[in-house]
């Protein structure tokens, strides 16, 4: 029993390390994807006159698809309520795009970029979170 307990304690220790690394890797990759997608949309929106452009539509769809996939993985590790704003903002982004509302579209894109930046503060390991 004593040896079993020690083995279990060691396995728990390894498991904790695994979860820490996994959380850091998943959150970094998800937020990096989000920032990259936003940068691409921003670039395309500057190049195109019409927000309903097929290239821009595809870029927004990619943003939504990537975030949905990453969000479902992050939900295992992060409080779901803390990351739901991005999903809401992407939905708004799609509506503004279909209405060709450039001003609101840009505001919404800025909001997504802001979340992508600010989420880094509570995801993964850093001194701010610890204190």
């Amino acid at each position: 029993m004593k040896i079993f307990s020690r083995v279990v304690i060691f396995l728990i220790f390894l498991l904790l390390i695994f979860f820490c690394v996994l959380e850091d890797a998943l959150s970094s990759s998800a937020l990096q994807d989000l920032q990259n997608d936003c940068a691409r949309i921003e670039q395309l929106s500057l190049e195109k006159d019409n927000l309903r452009d097929i290239g821009l539509t595809l870029a927004v769809d990619t943003l939504e698809y990537n975030w949905t996939a990453n969000e479902s993985n992050l939900c295992y590790l992060v409080n779901h309520k803390s990351i739901q704003e991005v999903g809401v903002e992407i939905s708004k982004l799609k509506v503004y795009q279909s209405e060709n509302d450039v001003k609101e579209f840009k505001a919404s894109l800025e909001a997504v970029k802001f979340y992508a930046h600010s989420y880094r503060h509570f995801m993964g390991a850093n001194l701010h979170n610890v204190i």
Partner: peptide, 8 residues
């Protein structure tokens, strides 16, 4: 709290 992952 359903929003909180079990891992938390």
């Amino acid at each position: 709290e359903i929003g909180v992952p079990v891992l938390h």
